[in-house]
């Protein structure tokens, strides 16, 4: 059982947690993740470690409530516990001094781009950050990113904040302006990562993406997270999660991530139904009181 020290929404449906896990806080490196299980019958979900604090032995994770488990997790508050956390898992990001490095975060992906941007800066890179959201309120970790980015470009799909357009449009613009870019790290929804790969491919820029296949044990035991890269099969949990964007078979990843769509829908419906029943009960109790 691990105690939640801090829990706050940083965007609609996106919540930041600081959770006690001193060993993981000590060990984790940028790009690594943990597996979390909310309760005794919970599933094991991988979540990237956004940050850690050695003073109070906490790690930071940022969760977007999409399905049953993430929504359930986002209902927890400071003082609550999660049932299990294990980590740090996966290979750390390969951090070098590439020269000019662009760190791209799409939506909640910024939570993963952030620790790597920090590490890239510390390794001596000139770091350009591009962080996108649907609208202004979905642009997260802007202040944190700004600390480690030499240039930072927030983007919004609707133009409500920063650059009007997708993160890829901004990247394209920089390249068309003739900016020299040596390395790109892109983390976000799969279509975004695929689009980034297509933008950098003609320029031959080394581009890395962090993949998010479905996992179970996340230590190499089940092979559920296999991804196709350069026509070979890899286990994202132990061989990744970061891979060469130009070689990833994104189609296969998108399809494999849809494997349990029906189940996910059903689980979420059941969960919301349960919450509604609970809420009605509470309302009645309140009314009686």
């Amino acid at each position: 059982m691990n105690r939640i020290i801090e829990a706050r929404f940083i965007a609609p449906e996106i919540k930041l947690f600081r959770i006690e896990a001193p060993k993981i806080a000590q060990k984790r490196k940028p790009g690594q993740f943990v597996v979390v299980r909310v309760d005794e019958l919970g599933e094991r979900i991988p979540l990237t470690i956004a940050d850690s604090n050695l003073d109070d032995g906490t790690i930071t994770i940022i969760v977007q409530g999409v399905g049953k488990t993430t929504k359930q997790l986002n209902m927890l508050e400071a003082g609550d516990y999660v049932h299990d956390i294990v980590g740090p898992l996966g290979k750390p990001s390969e951090i070098e001094n590439y020269g000019v490095a662009v760190s791209i975060g799409g939506g909640v992906g910024t939570a993963i781009a952030y620790p790597t941007a920090k590490a890239l800066k510390e390794a001596g890179n000139y770091v350009i950050g591009i962080i996108g959201g649907r609208t202004k309120e979905f642009v997260i970790l802007e202040d944190e990113m700004r600390q480690f980015c030499d240039e930072l470009y927030p983007t919004t799909d609707d133009g409500s904040y920063g650059f009007h357009g997708f993160v890829t449009h901004k990247l394209q613009q920089l390249l068309e302006e003739g900016r020299k870019i040596d390395f790109v790290l892109a983390i976000g929804p799969i279509p975004m990562m695929r689009a980034v790969a297509e933008v950098t491919r003609p320029y031959g820029i080394k581009t890395v993406v962090s993949l998010n296949p479905i996992m179970v044990d996340a230590t190499g035991m089940c092979g559920g997270c296999r991804v196709t890269v350069d026509n070979k099969t890899y286990f994202a949990c132990v061989d990744g999660p970061e891979f060469d964007a130009h070689k990833v078979d994104f189609d296969n990843l998108i399809k494999r991530n849809r494997m349990y769509l029906e189940h996910e829908r059903k689980a979420l419906e059941n969960f919301i139904c349960r919450i509604d029943v609970m809420a009605t009960k509470l309302e009645k109790e309140d009314a009686r009181a």
Binding site: L41, G42, R44, K68, H263, A267, N270
Partner: peptide, 10 residues
């Protein structure tokens, strides 16, 4: 035991 347990199987 899905959906009582969260993890699905096809």
């Amino acid at each position: 035991e899905f959906p009582r347990a969260d993890t699905p199987i096809m």
